[in-house]
Design a protein around this nucleic acid. Structure first.
Lengths: 236, 236, 236, 236
DNA sequence: TATGAATGAGTTTTCATTCAT
DNA sequence: AATGAATGAAAACTCATTCAT
């Protein structure tokens, strides 16, 4: 384990990392003193490093190096390696829940709504590998860091509400079974969308097929939607 | 990250860790020097440490300390920290596949066979948290260590054969749909059984309910069997 | 030694620290920028920090934080951490010698004068713990900072003069022994008054009794006066 | 405070530091592996550094450099900078109390015994500047480290017993006053012996005379014995 | 076969000080 | 006169690994 600073692939894809091009209309970019940008910059780089190497495996020096600033700023703003890791978790979890809000699922027919929810969940995990990895990493630590993120618990209830609403409307419309627990259903959807991304490496070497490979995406997406719908639908 | 050598819970349950008192009835095996026992002892302790802390997070000193021998022996037998980690992976992956053989699923009716397979998979993951964690950890490292385990690939094909056989017989009997890919189905079953264990910590803090809690086990087991059967069965 | 910015107790007692609300009756002195007040404020906070933590242990950030201004001002006015430390020493040493002047000991009978001097010395050390600590700290640094304080040496001669005068008058009056060196006597008085304050912590934990505890003050005061008088008085 | 690794003078005098030439009769010195010697070596060097620089001012690197080993061993045996500092305190306090035992004061006439005790205390402080400095330093930290030294409290009671015994016998013999508290007396003796060493630097620059200068030693020694005897003796 | 001591090269963290505004 | 952001250099501490016995 001498050196080697790269674990799996870089995974620099998607929404999670990379400072968004917001405010780009103003041309005063690159102000020498821009705390917000400095913080965001550090956070983005840290997201990649922690996601790629884990908490213990990540190197503060490595993060600092790829930053526009120095290691010192990292401590200035985030206090410690753990503090930075926690900030990364907070950001990353915030992103997915925020996007879920934008789906306006309550306006859809129950079946279509369920399909939309599953597809969104699928797409999000499929794209946000950093997110998936970080969740995995956090579970190795018994979720003890995310527990300290104040905004964490509150944010997650909304998905459950969405599902509850879908189930209730589906039952009322005679489309859905009435014996399904919303949290269990959420777990089920998550499982199907998460596992194929999170454990794609061992799965890949075991069966010679990377389950997250683009070519399989469409098929898996349809399959998972199908499975969930078969599960919730009332048999006639 | 000062000290603290415990990440999540100890997870000393099940087959994976703890040298079983087997063979103890035989002649007093407590010879002064018993290389095999020493190795097994190291391996058991290492399984716990790696599973609890990850590869980077595990401490060679911590492993040595909980062992009956010294750090030197660890290097003597396994060469390096990574070598030891790999040995742990090898042992742990060996166990599950060995057990699958004993199911004699081919003797069962397709539907019952499918149910048995799912239930076995469920039970195994539910009990072998160390296994689940190690798989998780290995994926963070892009499966690069498991790739070097020679016996790994061969072992996994058997599950796929079992599923292929089940599907073929189910289709022949008019019970199952004919458009299901066996590897996809295996992925699906794994997802449902794995996720609730591997990510139970973040799930637990997010939704206030530990999905791997014993009280939920029976319900989840039934739910997953149900979901899989609904998925594979042919609609009439 | 992770964090923890507090060494012993705050010791915010007495004259040394805390800008007195003097002058507050006059026209609202709260001008937008008041250099003198800013300097005094910094000096007071620094006195506490240096006295509590020592020169090396004191943190410039900690001082700045408890100030009404920022770290920059501290450098603006005092140049460096050491410069600030030196300014603190200067202030603190100035106070005690100034007070000694007000005793008018030369007007008292030798024995009463000696008593008054000892009592003053006792009371001053008993109250000015910051002073005692800073002297202690400065000695660890071989007095190299106080040496640079220009006003320092001159100030101290006066005590010796006072003692010389007392001894001379006492000898003349047949009350005192004639073989006492004034500087040695001053050292003796200082020793007795200083040690019980400066080393009260180790003394306290060693013998279960804090020698600077208020309840012991009167007793110690009398004891020290007694000891000194017995020492200087001529036996009959 | 850029660099400057030396505060006051080295003070490498006396019993405290320097590995004692015990066991020197065996010629197997310089064994490559000698934990006790390694520890003692580190401890001796650390005593000098802490005594010269204080806890915060001391540099772990500086200690390691002057050692026969590396920084790593320092942590191996003492755990942390603070742990090492604490070990130093323990050793240093142990030394003085051990020597006190060897005086056999209880066999002497009260007045001679008192003289012997004062002279011993004087000589010890006069020689063991490291001890004096370390006590001073520990007081800056509110004695919080010495408090954690288990052997500390027990050791110190013995001096008090010695004094109690002296006083009792002196009173019985009609030589001593009966109103003296033994702990107060001990404080008094300590004050007189400690201050002239501990604060010699500020005293020296203030009055142009180093109170611990060898030429003054005999005079001070006699003076302090005299002062204490005058204090305890019963007037006739 | 087995072991406690030892270590070099890193890794995290801290700190006094300065810069741009 | 005043400030929040920024920093280079150094400090404490850790870790996988090897050596002498």
């Amino acid at each position: 384990m001498k050196k080697g600073s790269k674990a799996a692939e870089p995974d620099t894809n998607g929404i999670v990392s990379g400072s968004p091009p917001v405010d780009a209309r103003r041309i005063d970019t690159r102000r020498k003193y821009d705390p917000e940008q400095t913080k965001r910059n550090i956070l983005d780089v840290a997201t990649q490093e922690f996601s790629a190497m884990g908490l213990a495996g990540a190197r503060v020096d490595a993060i600092a190096e790829r930053t526009n600033t120095t290691k010192r700023m990292l401590y200035y703003y985030f206090g410690s390696k753990e503090g930075l890791y926690q900030a990364v978790l907070e950001k990353v979890y915030g992103d997915i829940r925020a996007l879920e809000q934008d789906l306006h699922i309550s306006e859809l027919d129950p079946i279509e709504g369920m399909r939309a929810l599953v597809e969104f969940t699928f797409d999000y995990h499929d794209r946000q590998r950093d997110f998936v990895r970080l969740v995995t990493i956090e579970n190795i630590h018994g979720a003890k860091y995310v527990e300290q993120v104040k905004t964490f618990k509150g944010r997650n209830v909304t998905v459950i509400h969405t599902i509850e609403d879908l189930l209730a409307r589906g039952i009322a419309a005679g489309q859905f079974r009435s014996d399904i627990d919303p949290i269990d259903l959420h777990l089920m959807i998550s499982s199907l969308c998460f596992h194929r991304v999170g454990n794609r490496h061992t799965f890949g070497t075991a069966f010679g097929r990377d389950p997250s490979h683009p070519r399989l995406r469409a098929r898996h997406r349809a399959m998972i939607v199908d499975a969930i719908l078969r599960f919730v639908k009332k048999e006639d």
